[in-house]
């Protein structure tokens, strides 16, 4: 009897073979990360959830083409980012005249702690000022722990570009957050 958890590779192999349960387990494992990435891409929690759901359907349709020898996470995140881009295009078509009050509005819940609320606002603003590719490179690298080469594959740019994007994004975040952002 096995007493170790099923690996992503095992689940991916089963999902490729048509197992809906294995696919569901994989999706559950990677959804929290996917949700964070979608939020970073769209800067809107509701749109982000829609994008994750769209990605889930796309991933199942494409699972036959997935190589189970490769990590599932980056493959799924790439689908999530594509879904986010599609959603943004659709939303733009619908909201051509609607200008948001704040580009950084993420519909976050009211905070009791004023400092935390201020930090949240500052982070929203800082993230919103970053060009999308830099924002994604920063989140994928510093928040999600992917290496430059993996991010390069996900974003479809050279690894050197990712390195540069992360550097510039960090500098912009540091400038935008000031003393709120940490120890400098």
């Amino acid at each position: 009897m096995r007493n170790y958890p099923v690996t992503d590779a095992e689940l991916a192999a089963q999902a490729c073979g048509g197992s809906s349960e294995a696919f569901g387990a994989l999706v559950e494992r990677h959804t929290q990360r996917a949700r964070r990435v979608a939020r970073a891409a769209l800067l809107d929690p509701h749109d982000a959830d829609d994008a994750v759901q769209d990605a889930l359907f796309s991933a199942w349709r494409a699972i036959g083409r997935f190589d189970p020898a490769r990590p599932f996470g980056p493959w799924f995140l790439k689908i999530v980012m594509n879904a986010a881009a599609d959603l943004r295009r659709r939303r733009k078509l619908r909201k051509t005249e609607e200008v948001p009050e704040s580009a950084a509005d993420t519909g976050s819940m009211p905070d009791r702690d004023t400092d935390r609320a201020l930090l949240r606002e500052a982070l929203d603003r800082a993230l919103a000022t970053l060009p999308e590719r830099r924002r994604m490179a920063l989140v994928l690298h510093d928040a999600e722990g992917y290496v430059h080469e993996e991010i390069a594959t996900m974003l479809g740019v050279p690894a050197g570009t990712v390195r540069s994007d992360v550097f510039h994004a960090r500098r912009a975040m540091r400038a935008a957050l000031g003393p709120m952002g940490g120890n400098d």
Partner: peptide, 30 residues
């Protein structure tokens, strides 16, 4: 440090529930 800050900022309290919901949706879709 920035990574932890971003992770906390981009996470939501209902992440676990959302993930469970997505699992059900994934199985149903499949």
């Amino acid at each position: 440090e920035l990574g932890a800050l971003l992770r906390a900022h981009l996470s939501a309290p209902d992440d676990v529930v959302f993930a469970a919901r997505m699992r059900i949706a994934a199985v149903a879709a499949a």
